[in-house]
Nucleic acid binder design. Sequence first.
RNA 1: CGGGGCGUGGCUCAGUUUGGUAGAGCGCUUGGUUUGGGACCAAGAUGCCGCAGGUUCAAGUCCUGUCGCCCCGACCA
Length: 480
Amino acid sequence: MADNNRKMVGSITSMDEDFAKWYTDIVKKAELIEYTSVKGCMVIRPYGYAIWENIQRILDGMFKETGHENVCMPMFIPESLLQKEKDHVKGFAPEVAWVTHGGSEKLEDRLCVRPTSEVLFCEHYANIIQSHRDLPKLYNQWVSVVRWEKTTRPFLRSREFLWQEGHTVHATAQEAIEETERMLDIYAEFCEKYLAMPVIKGRKTDSDKFAGAEATYAIEALMHDGKALQAGTSHYFGDGFAKAFGIQYTSKENKLVYPHQTSWGVTTRLIGAVIMTHGDDNGLVLPPDIAPVQAVIIPVMQHKEGVLEKCAGLKNMLAEDFRVKLDDSDNSPGWKFAEYEMKGVPVRIEMGPKDIEAGQCVVVTRHNREKTTVKLADIKAAVAGKLEEVRSGIYEKALKNRENRTYSCMNTDEIIKTLEENGDGFVKAMWCGDEACEDIVKEKTGAGSRCMPSEQEKISDVCVCCGKPAKALVYWGKAY
RNA sequence: CGGGGCGUGGCUCAGUUUGGUAGAGCGCUUGGUUUGGGACCAAGAUGCCGCAGGUUCAAGUCCUGUCGCCCCGACCA
């Protein structure tokens, strides 16, 4: 089909024309969110929330398998508590929202709406940890947090956002470091396997570290337009928080010692990442594992005797194995095709009188619009196969985009030239470890350090900026 | 926080230059014809023109103020 990928309707802005507009068009038209009267606070609509529920379900299972338990902390933090860890409060104070009144009474110690919950967990851990037998504590919570961002974008940066935050306490530094790495691995596995989104695992430079952390690790993904997006973080705290909050336990050797902590999180930003990784000019393209509807059945000539009954039968059969929807509304089939493409449903099944007579249906994959005729007897296996085709197809496409947009550069002029000629992307370049060089690179090229990848390569002996001996390979890029 | 843009039926916008009956397309409702890529006909409903002051016989339009949203930068998940 020559015009297979032709844009069917002009209802959303083309991504090549204006990527930012394309993005906001999609979140609205696919009914993921609706704006509210408070800037940066959005309604996550049923279809958008269902995506988040699927993300939650899968990730929560992975957390539980690795021994974590869910808890729920309050949403308010007294100012005095937030002050306890110096770096932490310095990092977050500029963007917290404050509660100053309870009813009509002014509060003596005003309350911060949590921007993250380290201090709440720490206060609690100080109360419940006494012995090495109490360790490790492997807690997680699914809540929302508030950060008063100046510039907001749906899913990518909102003032209130949903996330999970894991907070763990370990007897030794070694154990805590292992936990930090384990959770980063889980995030990477989740992104690659279930979101079909390739990520780079790596460590953040010190200037990019979480406020209060000893080391911050992150997974970085490259969006379709060549900009980087941090998709998840995992922090190693050492015993800094334990000391600030007086968390101590008695070791086997009967010594009073400080434990070591971690925290890690992913947010509804993942939904934004999925949109910008897989979406196209016809709308959203959802990875099958998180798609609220994995297959939609569109009846053709649905007024004809028997068509709807057959479709309903097909739906019931498929519903045993898949999240499936039958759209029997009186919109035209063409309207429905466009609608479910906009919503990113991975597989569409068309069934009309001709198909029914032949005992078959037409199966179409969202990402490439390929049509296949399938015997009804084989439909379950066919749908399973097609969902996997979509998953691997969009993964490969995203990986190819990243590979095409990953460059190696030896000096800052080369970075500038490369990005100008090829468009945004990841730049691999060596770094001496000096923060001044990091700043200069960002200022000159617009590309900041994204991470020092776990899989290090040595593409040169010297720093891309100052020419002194290099310490690490860094991925640089413009970021969301 | 800097730069730009925009507030008019549910949505996208015209109308503002030059003040004079509130508009279009889409969507919605009802009925009918349609149905393999956003169908068609007919009849309807829907507006404190962001908000507050002012000028005027008369304000969507002019003046002052204010609030909000979007986009682009700087900062962050």
